[in-house]
Amino acid sequence: MSELIQIGAARPKAPQPQDLTLRWSERAVEELEALKGHYPDLKSLILPALWISQREYGGHLPPEGIAEVAARLQRTYAEIEGVATFYSMYNTAHAPGRHMIEVCTCLSCHMCGAYRLADILEEKLGVKMGETTEDGVFTLHEVECLDACDRAPVIQVGPDYLDPQATLQDEGGEAKMRAWVDRLIDDLRSRPEPSSVRLADTVVQVHVRATER
């Protein structure tokens, strides 16, 4: 919205549904067809379809990915975009790195040193919260409660919950955290598969029945 604004200037038109390039794989289309039987109407399918689209578009939901969902569900673009931009787990704003590290900073994790852990991650990766490393491997995010207080401080990478098994209050806790973060970064670097795609796929598989996979 930052471009030069001119009153009365015509806005670009949204593409016609028939002009879209549909990029979903055959498997995704089959999953969508299977899901159609789970709900009374296509409107109810918006959330699972957006997860499929996020997986198909590489862990990111660009405008094209939203438009494809709209075209496949016969809804309007604006309606689907409104839903997609409401939920923070759909990555509509920008493409995340290969691994999105989400640090929980809610109460229990905070008590156990989540911000110290976050500082260590920022220091080791050389980026701030919400940023992606230059090589495009890591994106760091601060998130609200991950519902794993027993493992505090906890982080989420794709569908996996990970924790340093040490709190700030432990003897040598910070050193343990540092060592763990080093191991974590090395481990993630060696994994070529994007974790955000893995997360999206996990969610889709929760929706699709075993018989439909």
Binding site: R11, A14, P63, I66, A78, E81
Partner: peptide, 9 residues
């Protein structure tokens, strides 16, 4: 607003 701020048609 409209989808991606395109024209309100």
């Amino acid at each position: 607003s409209t989808f991606q701020l395109t024209d309100f048609e």
